[in-house]
């Protein structure tokens, strides 16, 4: 396959960026999108140019490190992560636009790499349980109804890649935050912090400069793990419940 790539190049956080055009040849349709970028970078290095910086780690679709908005879609045209997107989703001769996640709370560090530490701070604000650590507890010590376990697991699937923020026209982190709130709030292990968790995580989300939800549904469409839009509804419910409870104390 022969492709034309238009890639966002930006030297550092303060430098202005622009789209640069590159031609790549000899791309196999079995390559992943990141392998295609590796080919581009080898080409750039050989010609003495600065390779394109992009985030990646496991390349198995489970770590949440890779990003990229490809032709206007977070993680590209398939419902998966960029590392699991294969070149067979494109055609020979295609022009592909590659841009970084765009959000005020995700500043560009270099080229396609953005700073997603705002997500870490949202997790620090309440995305944990204060259970004592140590050896694994006996599995039947804390019974969890099957429906709750499934619900928690569905939301625990979030890998924190930030595609929801990138896809949202408001740069909102509602889907990410709601995934963690729902995951922990439904479980008995998360019950002691049920109120403070949602209040603190939403407050941190606001403080980081993420936008609000206007229910366009873009986040859920972009999510490679299929966190549903109704997850946000669930968080709103938890937030309202917590605000009432805390006011009574």
């Amino acid at each position: 396959m022969k492709l034309t790539l238009r890639v966002w190049r930006q030297r550092n956080a303060d430098a202005p960026g622009a789209m640069s055009t590159y031609d790549v040849d000899g791309i196999s349709s079995d390559m992943s999108f990141l392998e295609m970028l590796d080919v581009l970078n080898e080409q750039l290095i050989l010609s003495g140019e600065d390779p394109v910086a992009f985030d990646h780690d496991c390349r198995e679709g489970i770590c949440g490190a890779c990003s990229l908005v490809i032709n206007g879609d977070a993680h590209g045209p398939e419902r998966t992560t960029t590392c699991q997107l294969h070149m067979r989703s494109f055609r020979d001769g295609d022009t592909i636009d590659i841009e970084p996640w765009r959000a005020a709370a995700f500043p560009v560090i270099k080229d396609l790499v953005v700073d997603r530490s705002a997500f870490d701070r949202i997790i620090q604000a309440g995305g944990y349980v204060t259970a004592p650590t140590g050896s694994a507890p006996e599995a039947h010590a804390t019974p969890v109804p099957k429906a709750d376990a499934d619900f928690a697991f569905e939301h625990a699937e979030c890998i924190g890649c930030g595609a929801c923020v990138a896809a949202c026209p408001n740069g909102a982190a509602m889907l990410f935050t709601s995934a963690k709130v729902n995951h922990l709030n439904v479980l008995p292990q998360g019950a002691p912090e049920r109120e403070t968790r949602v209040l603190d995580m939403v407050a941190q989300m606001d403080a980081e400069g993420f936008g609000g939800c206007t229910l366009t549904g873009e986040c859920a469409t972009a999510c490679p793990k299929g966190i549903p839009l109704v997850s946000i509804t669930g968080m709103n419910k938890e937030w309202l419940r917590a605000a009432r409870r805390v006011a009574k104390r």
Partner: peptide, 14 residues
């Protein structure tokens, strides 16, 4: 708040 949270648009917008 929403507009401030997304200061730069995508080049490939749809």
């Amino acid at each position: 708040r929403d507009i401030k949270a997304r200061p730069s648009a995508y080049v490939h917008a749809k």
